[in-house]
Design a binder for these strands. Sequence first.
DNA 1: ATGAAAGCGCTAACAA
DNA 2: TTGTTAGCGCTTTCAT
Lengths: 336, 336
Amino acid sequence: MRKKVTLKQLARELNLSISTVSKSLKNDPEISEKTINRVHELASFYNYKPNALAVSLKSNKTKTIGIILPEILNHFFAKALYGIEQEASNNGYKIVTCITNESYKKEVEYVEMLNYSSVDGFIVALSQETQVLNKFDHYQALKRENVPVVMFDRVSEEIDCDKVIVDDKEASKNAIEYLINTGCKKIAVITTISDLSVAKLRLEGVKEAIDINAEVTLIELPLRDSQNVEAEIEKFLNNNDLDAVLGLDETAAAISINMSHKLGYKIPEDISVIGFTDGLLSKHSYPKLTTVSQHAEELGAKAAQILLNQLDDFEEKHISKTEVVKTSLIVRDSTN
Amino acid sequence: MRKKVTLKQLARELNLSISTVSKSLKNDPEISEKTINRVHELASFYNYKPNALAVSLKSNKTKTIGIILPEILNHFFAKALYGIEQEASNNGYKIVTCITNESYKKEVEYVEMLNYSSVDGFIVALSQETQVLNKFDHYQALKRENVPVVMFDRVSEEIDCDKVIVDDKEASKNAIEYLINTGCKKIAVITTISDLSVAKLRLEGVKEAIDINAEVTLIELPLRDSQNVEAEIEKFLNNNDLDAVLGLDETAAAISINMSHKLGYKIPEDISVIGFTDGLLSKHSYPKLTTVSQHAEELGAKAAQILLNQLDDFEEKHISKTEVVKTSLIVRDSTN
DNA sequence: ATGAAAGCGCTAACAA
DNA sequence: TTGTTAGCGCTTTCAT
């Protein structure tokens, strides 16, 4: 194993002290130009790079941020991760990604593990179980140690930290209004994620939008068994003579479209469909899905920006802010 | 900022030396039981955890593996990442994820960055540009330094390292044969990823499967502009009276399905469609797509296993192996 | 049974 | 202009 080159070795070969070499590499003006050049030459000959671990230990900074995600197969989080990664790497930060799989226990484990000097700060979207249990001790601990945390999308009011969320309430309100405006009267809201904070907000928006002329029915379906979800939605669509469906997640909308086909309903003539999360399914459904875009990538990027700012100019007393990213309704072919 | 607890502080409070505390925490038999208990008590009171950085610097191990991925919005890689993450975290490893966005330059940067003591080893899927340019110096450097690397899916013969690949050739061969067996004669192969090693293999499989009774046409479409891809596929389907389409990537297959609807073709009665990558699009297309599953999750998990094995029992002379993961054709509703 | 000391690779205050 | 030294937090060998 060809060992990595260290300052020590460079120093020995050049007959200089370690500190002189170190300073030379930083072009410290107190070192003679001649020495600086000699050092740079040998360093680049050996392709010297400082040992990141040692630098981190010394500086107490790792240039790494920890990302806690509930899921990665979900396009929304994948896009957010993409946005985070871009922003981080553009600023010389690495990311370490942990996937909790919606488990509280894993979330706690990950946060604790990363907090032992592996990362400078966290970007978090809470797991479903954590939201249900409402237990946030692991974040209080970070707070106490003054470790910067930015939460996005899946947040909790009980945690005092910067947050980036989507105006979910407004979004579903707009969606329902759009449906009503295009003549839909009997509208169903289908959700497979009722435990989540975002679902609750979306539901609130729905309620606000309910018009005297329209009848909005709500159905919640458990996600556990995806076979069932399809059958349930099919049955539901068949039993109710609906004008429109608002799916509170992308899958619900996609399945609604497909079950409508199966039942022989024409979209959007017989039934309109709107979904959430402008992911692959929305773009490649037939007809293309009208959908609420949450701008996941910007969301992730924004969360990263906020965190990086906090890491750069660290203030002892930080006042938490919540930033709301506007959604937009992307009208495609599944609505009138 | 409440500083993190260190051995030093524990030692001071307990009136012991740092080394005694360190040993106690490891239940070293040469320390008296009484002392061990005292130490453990205070440690857990302060919720002491060793500083990962210091441990890494000392041990020259980071318990972290670097993942280099060309894309994350692609379901295949997201699933593979999921498999890797599971396997890694089950074995006490963290992962740091880098997304090259198919760029050679970013790939080189990431590999170099992580190699400076941030990770113990790498799991890599090559970027498209790297495969086109055929430049692998950054991996030769790792080889020289004896840093374990496992590549998966997007690999190169020119790099000597462990690999996990999918039997792409066999997979497309089987897919074509399936189409032929179900009575399809005029078959098109649509690919938007012709630059990739995997596409070439899949194409080889197609050729092997060509039967005297069937006529197989090949069309390659550039991925750059997705608007165009749809229009091109529509035009193509319209101009050719096809019995079946094999999409060499999931998107191509999904679009083929949708354009068939648009043209009024019934699936699978008028035209059969098979895709690659058993992702969300395949499960939520209508009709559900018959598809080649590459078992991305297992692929990722296997890559991680191989890497972790190598990290555990390090042998000076390691002989590189290539593991082939079998694909399977998941027959759903888009074929006869 | 406990402690002192060296060292992982680096930075930086201080000395020469 | 260059070098010495201490220290980041930990492990480990070698005294005591």
